[in-house]
Design a protein around this nucleic acid. Sequence first.
DNA 1: CATGAATGAGTTTTCATTCAT
DNA 2: CATGAATGAAAACTCATTCAT
Lengths: 190, 190, 190, 190
Amino acid sequence: MQRPDEEKRKTILRVARDLFSRKPYHEVLLDDVAAAARVGKGTLYIYFESKDHLYLELVTEAFDVLLDDIDERIRADAESNWKLLEDLIALLAKWMAKHPTMFDLMGSNIHPVRRDALKQRRRRLGVCFEAVLRRGVEAGEIVDAQPELTAQFIPAMVRSGVVYGRRGLKADDIASQVVTLLTRGVRGRS
Amino acid sequence: MQRPDEEKRKTILRVARDLFSRKPYHEVLLDDVAAAARVGKGTLYIYFESKDHLYLELVTEAFDVLLDDIDERIRADAESNWKLLEDLIALLAKWMAKHPTMFDLMGSNIHPVRRDALKQRRRRLGVCFEAVLRRGVEAGEIVDAQPELTAQFIPAMVRSGVVYGRRGLKADDIASQVVTLLTRGVRGRS
Amino acid sequence: MQRPDEEKRKTILRVARDLFSRKPYHEVLLDDVAAAARVGKGTLYIYFESKDHLYLELVTEAFDVLLDDIDERIRADAESNWKLLEDLIALLAKWMAKHPTMFDLMGSNIHPVRRDALKQRRRRLGVCFEAVLRRGVEAGEIVDAQPELTAQFIPAMVRSGVVYGRRGLKADDIASQVVTLLTRGVRGRS
Amino acid sequence: MQRPDEEKRKTILRVARDLFSRKPYHEVLLDDVAAAARVGKGTLYIYFESKDHLYLELVTEAFDVLLDDIDERIRADAESNWKLLEDLIALLAKWMAKHPTMFDLMGSNIHPVRRDALKQRRRRLGVCFEAVLRRGVEAGEIVDAQPELTAQFIPAMVRSGVVYGRRGLKADDIASQVVTLLTRGVRGRS
DNA sequence: CATGAATGAGTTTTCATTCAT
DNA sequence: CATGAATGAAAACTCATTCAT
């Protein structure tokens, strides 16, 4: 995807990500984006087809970085599926802390057509975890009757920790609590 | 002489909830709401101060129903805190299935001033679960070093199941998977 | 003009006059009028055809009182045309002090069709003064090459005194200054 | 790249002045203004903050032109205060003939907050005349016990001549009648 | 007659997108 | 390529008027 000025493109995306992280979609004006990126408003349309497309690229880009990281980790043979799972959770927590509103963004602000591109990413994330879980099940490391649900739960837990957790909570704290839950739940052995 | 009609108010809220559940805030026109409720546009302004207020009422109302149900269940002495926890999760799953987008709505569509009313509800939800967890810990039924995080995880898991789970998934399926997780995690005993 | 409840009609007119004197036409809501008159909004439409008609009646009514007073004074043989002129000015000043914004109201708030009814009244006022001036000219009491202009000037002066004069200015002060001007102007005899 | 166009701004003001002179504030739609100025509706909002602001600028601008002209004339040492007074009246009459409704506009159409800017101008106009009158009194050219009232009368007379005078009346006719009145009134010397 | 809830045409204002320079 | 002035469709909200009770 070679563009006239790849640098400028990056700047716009970075600046836009900032704005979209702070305000809801409809409160972020392209005037603001242009001003913050120090470019003319028309320039935005050289690099992005529309506000929706800019927004979409923004979110998917961040997402894709995560998904790539996850893929890479998965491919790098881990010592066990459980260890891999722990690593992925740590990865996820760190990423989520950096993009605290990225999942909110997925909300429903965007045009339905574009929305699907986002849902698909979110789903892929689940699929990654599901795969690891299933392999763990096969390997006897994991016992889970509904791994596809658990796979959805994991990112959801991480996100809720980041978004609703008390101030000062570290990504590691969240990750370790998720792991604890997956390890033994919270029920006392009586 | 006609009297202000509580029935009509309900109708508007119901109809609006439908629309806001299907489309993002800015795509729901008051024209649509009025048309769907079979009332004039001006009528909306008799019952609600503004679009924002209508929307807020919509979400908080649904939320408050849930919170009330939860409070009631908590007060009705349960046989154990664990049983109570299971009940609340079932309750939550059922409610969430009925309002699949209610948490998304909380996202970032609404005016910042009003947004707080929602955040506060979400927080109260966490507080309820946290209280039950802590009591469980005291009673020796539960082992959890970070109950306030777990309390956030629970609604998040339920929501992710509803929103991203495969079609045809029942509220009960989700609830039971959450309970399973909380009970023993997914790690195999090797 | 016998109406169901002449009293209620009067109340509405009085109350509306108050409101229209304080705020521009479009800021006076019929809701306000109805509330202030302690009647239902629909009731207004029993007594008046429309907001415009109510407004029109309001202004013309006050005007007609003035015009009637003037006519009466004119018919009552005065000792001289000059004395009559002085009396009319005093009358006018007193009336204007009671309806300070009545001429502003004539401004251009109202529907063009209705507007003419007002212009006509204002003109009639000029005509009254013009008639007196002309008779004064014939009687040799007055020297004026343009009595129809002077006739317009008189109400204008009185109004400006009421509207823009310093607080606490009495109707008599204004009237007497107008009379002074008409008597000898302000030019020094050198 | 286009530059903000001062010419366009002028066009809009001129066109808007025309419209506001013919119709009351609330009957002048920004659609009309935009159409008449041959610009898009949004363009109006580039040059003016709101309808109110456009309107205010319109009126104050015209007023300020007059006030500047008057100031200039006053500073240019006149042969006598009386001659100066005559000049100012002529100036005023000419201006008023060009903006027949400018004083009506001041009426009560505009938002209260903005209204003050106008009242202040009208007052300044009075102050100018008052200053000249007082100097004339000191110089023995003028005899007037209430110059501040006379100062209010002068614009009022001119205006009434323009607004209510017969068709075809020239600014000069009005000015000369005002001067005549100020010179010797209309009372016959018997 | 009296009421005030209901109505919806009418207005201002916003903002993504275009395009002349 | 870059710009930012221009555009106008779209949307929230108002309020005179109607009409069921």
